[in-house]
Structure formats: C-alpha cells, structure tokens
Design a protein around this nucleic acid. Structure first.
Length: 702
DNA sequence: GCGTGACATTTTTTT
DNA sequence: AATGTCACGC
C-alpha cells in the first residue's frame, strides 16, 4: 500500500510528500501535480501513523477544491473522511464559530452576509446615519471595511490621518455595531472572528493547536494578510504547515492576496524546506517555452522554469482580425474544423480578459449552432427568488435579522411602503430593538406580515428541511407571485431546484454538526455559490475569463482580445505592479493549454458602444518568435496597428508614456481613440485625476 | 406604493 | 450595448 501511494510520483513530488513533520513550502508550477501532492501528503501522513485523520487541517479557497481533495482522499485511504477538517477558510471558520458561538460573542443562529447582503447592510447604515452617499459611496465603504478586516484591523486600529479616512473608520465601527446587533457576520468577519476567538481564548487555542499537528494549504499565493495570520495561529508553535502555491499564478492581488506571504513563510517557517515542482505533465514544449519566456520578464519572482519530457508539439497559432467580429468568426471556424476532425467541444476553451468580450464570441458560436457554455455570471444562490426564499427562512430561525426582514417584508407586495418602514425603523431605533421586535409590539399595517411569519413558524415546525422550505415558498406567496409573472417560470423552476438542494443537503449532512438543519442550510447557501446550472456536462465549448480558467486545462485554448488596453487591461497601467499581475494572468492563460494554443487579437473592437482601435498586446512581443506560427500573411506582430496607431505615431505618443500638460501637470497616457483631428488621449494626472483630452488642443509636452 | 425614464458606469472574483 | 441606480410623477 505504501508503495502504491508513492509509486507514480516523480522524485520531487515524492520528496514533498514524504517530508518530515515540519513546515515546508512547495512551489508548484502550473500542471505539476500540485493537488496530487497535497492529497497524497495527507494520505501518506495518516497511513504512516504520523497523524490521525482528525489531526489534519487542510485549507483551500474554493469549495470545489475542498470537495475534490476529500474525494481523492477517500479514494486513497480506507477511512471515512467525515469529521475531517478539510474546507475553505470561510467554511472552517464558520464551523469553529458555530461550535463556539457563545465564546465568540455571536448568537447561536447567526447569519452570514454574502457580498450583496453586505452592500445592502452598508446602504442601510449610511441611510440611518444620514451620510452623504456621494462622498461616501456604499461600494467604497464596503470595500474599505473588507480591506481592513482582511488586513486583520478592527475599526479602532485603522490608521486614519485625514478626515475622510477617519470618517470611514467611524462608519466601519458603526457597521460592526449594526452587524453585532443584528447577529450577522460578513465573509471577512468569519475569518477575523475565528482568529480573534482563538487569539483571546487560551483554552480553545491550546485545544486546537494540540489537535492539528499538520496544516496544509492550497493556492498559498492567494492568501491575504488575515488568512496568513489565521494559519499561523492555528499552527501555533508546533504544527507543521505545508504550503503549496505558485507565485507566478498569483492573480488576485486586486482583492487583497499578498504574494509576500510566500517569501515571509519561507523565511519564518520553511527555511531549507522549499521544494520546486517544475516538471509539467500538461502541455507540450512550445507552450511551456512561451509561458517561461513571458513570465521571466517579471521581477520579484521566486523563480521556476517548467519543463516537460513531451515533445515541442505545435507552435502557438497567431491570428490578427480586422475587428472583433472577424476574430470571433475565426475562432468559430477553427472550432468547427477541430470538431469535424473529431475533437471534443468540451475540451476547447475560449478565454478573454473581461466578461464584456464574451458577447461577440457567444453570438458567433450561437449563429454557428455550436453548443457553448459561459462560466461566471449570476450564481444559483444569488438569484433574487432564491434570496427571497432564504430570507423568509432566515426570519424563521433568526427574526432579528433586519436585512432579511427588509428583503421580504413587502415581497410579494403587501402594501408596506417606505413610509411604514420609516416608522418601523424609527420605533426600533427608539426602543433599541430589532425591526421584527418593533413590528411585533406595534403591528399596525405590519400585522399581516407578523401573522404570516408566525404562521410559517407553526407550519414548518417538525417538518424536514426540504418540506419546510416548500411550505415557506408556498405560504409566503412567492410561489403565487411567480406563477403570475410572465417570466416567472424559470424562477419557479429555480425555487424547485432549491427544495431539491435542501433535500440533498439534509441527506449528506453530517449529524455531528452543532447547529440545527435550518441554520446549517442557510450557512451552506451563503458559503457555497452553487456551481452547476443546466448546460453542465454537455459537450460544449467553454467560454470564460482567464481568472475563471485558473486550475483548469483544455486540449485547445483560444486566448482572445490580445490588445494593449484590454490584455493587459488599461486599468492595470496605473496600479502598482499592475502590469506584472497582468503578465501572471497571461501566464495562467497560456498554461491552460495541453496541445494547441491560439492567440488572437483585433485591430478594432466595439467596446462600451464605441469602436476602439488597439494595437497588439505587448505580451505577444514577449513570446519567443520560434514558438509562434503566424496565420496571417503579413505578420508584423510587434508593430502597432490601425488608425489609432497612426494617430499616435503622428503625434509621437503612446500608451504608458509620460506627458506634461500646462494646467494639469505631469501624467501618463493610459488610452487613446480616434484619428487625425479627432484623436483623443486619456491621461492619468497625479493631481487632476484621469481626463480625456483632444490631442489637437491639449498641447502635451513629452 | 409603484412604475417609468433619465442617468451614469462599466477588470478580474471567491467566500 | 447593457445594466443598474435614482428621482420623479401618478
């Protein structure tokens, strides 16, 4: 058994799997068998008797990755994976907080706010405090709160040197008070609360630190400051931290991921125990050569070079289209040819930098009658009918949840408008109670609603979860409402799907869990996006952003829209290290392909309702020419294209160039459009912000 | 209380 | 082009 576990591993992988009981950093390149090493390591540790299954803590970022890990473990070991702590940061934090809700200062049935719910809560707060939402945009306030929580900072510890930031910190403090009063926790709160719980409660800390002897983390390059501290706290002085990651695939810095964690981890924990997995089992040579050459341009890398024993394979096919439609038509033609040659559509992916680009591609595929599937977009548990049904459920288990009440109090419409609600909120504020309590004590127009909730409570008492949910959907009036809607059929279907999900959830649920089935299901709904929708499993071309493609692989990959300003995205030019992140993104895109890779771009494209001209992405210049196969007759790949390029060369300006304006001062060109007398450039100035200027009149110095 | 039209606002996304 | 937000009038 021991042998079979390690048999198929290469020497580096085996070395990683069989490391002693100490912390280590595994630098795992794309396609190097990262997940395999992680799961085999756990299996090996357990098999060797170095740790019991309950002494393992394995953390991932997505539920999908956690599930896959559990499935692989179950296949490797003759043990039950039930009760093992394998999950996402948020899922595990939730588990801890549900078990120790009292010590954590939370109500037993505390509810989890997803992104939407949180934004609604912030808006409500700003309104209650009479804050000018022009000056303090809800989204920005939300971002401020989350960024600080993810840095591990509570409101009183936020450093604020200017009045605006000070005010934001006050709002952050008020927001936390509101959440506490309502008994709800947003996503970063789960982690921060779990962290603080262990930090402050010595008994609990000792308990968990003694229990978890081996802590393993996947996608370590994506951890933020709080997650890293969370890991360190769980590990304590003794546990072995096994971190697997790839700094070259860090593409989430924009949401707080801190690649610096890897260097810090090496210094503080893994000194001398760093293993690089560089052998790639996925792609042919030309693809890897291209990826290696591209990523080599980034500074501050930990350094890795992928290699394969497979041959060079096909060169990367390069196509330039006249516009986005021609580009899409090309992609479609190639797909059709490949399909005719017997390739599976599901093994082809069309990637793009931003979601807006999918439309043209979808249109082309649709017209051609090729089945396709677009990833991203609205998730199951984020749909309004689902949120409504869940909000009713929340009212039943946790009536003090003001957000849930406001969501359903007048949906379906029952004549409770802004005026009534204002009165209700006023009374709640005066009495210092939740909206629900205020509604119960002075019902007035709200009486029917209060009665409805009470009736629902009685109706579902003792029912299994799925039946209870079906009752709620029927009795709340949601069902009748959507039956009457013209486009309600799909929503009704989704509600049916939700009942199914509840039934499935109850079936699979572990009985050992501390919380009731209702709370558990609501937490599940908040933490689990609800992956698959129709279309899944069918043989269809896969359309997705490069971000969404991370972790996946395909026989054939199309990387589209390779134009300056789009990929790399113009927004990145102004950001610190923005271009390096874009390059890592391109690296991720390249390494998704096993056998065939297409790189396409268009000279002009319709964006935000207007035609914009662009030139070929600099990333194309950064690939080794020998690995490329140009498909157009003339292929001046590095040369600029189109009218806009002309305008630029006329004026001697280009994107990324520093310029000076008489009034606005120093700035950097971030975009341009039009030609001749209409040519305009977008310049980001230090003081004056970002402005569009007509080239003819701007008189820019450079 | 609810429907309508003007208006801005557009990277990437998981939990 | 498309979507969400918001103020306004019925």
């Amino acid at each position: 058994m021991n042998d079979t576990l390690l048999d198929t591993l290469n020497p580096e992988q085996r070395r990683a799997v069989t490391l002693p009981d100490a912390s280590a950093l595994i630098l795992a390149g794309a396609g190097s068998g990262k997940t395999r090493v992680l799961t085999t390591r756990i299996a090996w540790l357990i098999q060797q008797g170095r740790v019991s299954p309950l002494g393992v803590l394995a953390v991932t970022f997505t539920n999908k990755a956690a599930k896959e890990m559990l499935a692989r473990l179950a296949a490797l070991l003759p043990i039950s994976t039930r009760g093992m702590w394998v999950g996402t940061f948020h899922g595990l934090s939730n588990r801890l907080l549900r078990t120790h809700w009292r010590e954590a200062g939370l109500p037993q049935s505390f509810q989890i706010l997803d992104h939407q719910d949180q934004l609604a809560a912030v808006k409500r707060l700003l309104k209650a405090l009479n804050v000018d939402t022009e000056k303090y945009e809800p989204r920005k306030v939300q971002w401020f709160i989350n960024a600080n929580k993810e840095a591990g900072l509570r409101a009183h510890r936020v450093e604020a040197f200017d009045p605006h930031t000070r005010r934001l910190a006050e709002l952050y403090a008020a927001y936390d008070v509101q959440c506490q009063r309502e008994g709800v926790a947003d996503f970063p709160e789960l982690l921060l609360r779990a962290y603080e719980l262990l930090e402050r409660n010595e008994l609990l800390r000792q308990h968990y630190q003694e229990r978890f002897r081996h802590i393993l983390v996947d996608e370590f390059q994506d951890t933020n400051a709080l997650q890293y501290r969370w890991l360190r706290l769980f590990a304590g002085p003794q546990a072995a931290l096994f971190a697997v990651g790839d700094d070259d695939q860090s593409i989430y810095a924009f949401r707080g991921a801190n690649t610096g964690n890897m260097a810090e981890f090496e210094r503080d924990y893994a000194q001398g125990r760093v293993i690089k997995l560089e052998r790639n089992y996925r792609s042919h040579g030309h693809i890897l050569d291209a990826a290696n050459a591209l990523i080599a341009r980034n500074t501050r890398r930990l350094g890795k070079n992928l290699w394969t024993e497979d041959g060079k394979g096909e060169r990367l096919r390069l196509f330039q289209g006249y516009n986005d439609q021609e580009e899409a038509a090309f992609v479609m033609d190639e797909i059709r040819q490949l399909e005719r040659a017997g390739a599976s559509l599901a093994d082809m992916a069309v990637l793009y930098r931003s979601n807006a680009q999918s439309r043209v591609l979808e249109h082309a595929l649709f017209s051609a009658g090729l089945p396709y599937r677009v990833y991203g977009g609205l998730r199951f548990f984020e749909r309004q009918e689902i949120k409504h049904a869940l909000a009713y459920l929340r009212m039943l288990t946790h009536p003090d949840d003001d957000g849930a009440l406001l969501r359903v109090v007048n949906f379906p419409a029952r004549g409770i408008g802004a005026r009534t609600l204002e009165g209700l909120q006023e009374r709640a504020r005066a009495a210092g109670t939740s909206l629900w309590q205020a509604a119960c004590t002075a019902p007035g127009k709200l009486a029917p609603f209060v009665r409805l909730i009470e009736d629902l409570k009685r109706a579902i008492d003792g029912l299994p979860l799925a039946e209870a949910l079906a009752q709620v959907i029927a009795l709340s009036g949601l069902e009748a409402f959507y039956k009457g809607e013209r486009e309600g059929a799909e929503r009704l279907e989704n509600l049916g799907e939700l009942v199914n999900a509840a039934a499935l959830f109850e079936q699979e649920r572990e009985e050992t869990e501390a919380e009731g089935p209702l709370d558990a299901f609501l937490a599940h709904a908040a933490l689990e996006a609800g992956e698959h929708q129709a279309e899944a499993g069918r043989d269809a071309v896969q359309l997705m952003t490069v971000h969404a493609a991370k972790g996946l692989e395909f026989h054939t990959v199309f990387i589209t829209g390779l134009e300056e300003g789009l990929f790399p995205h113009e927004q990145s030019f102004a950001e610190n290290d923005g271009l390096e992140e874009e390059r890592r993104l391109m690296y991720v895109a390249l390494t998704r392909a096993r056998r065939r890779l297409y790189l396409t771009f268009a000279q002009s494209r319709l964006l935000h309702g207007q035609t914009r001209c662009g030139m070929a992405s600099r990333f194309l210049d950064e690939l080794p020419p020998g690995a490329l196969l140009p498909l157009n007759r003339s292929v001046p790949v590095p040369a600029p294209y189109g009218a806009a390029a002309l305008a630029k060369s006329e004026a001697g300006l280009q994107v990324g160039q520093s310029v000076r304006h008489a009034k606005f001062g120093a700035g950097v060109i971030v975009d341009f459009e039009g030609r001749g007398g209409d040519a305009r450039v977008q310049v980001k100035f230090g003081q004056a912000g970002t402005k569009w200027l007509v080239l003819q009149y701007a008189n820019l110095q450079h």
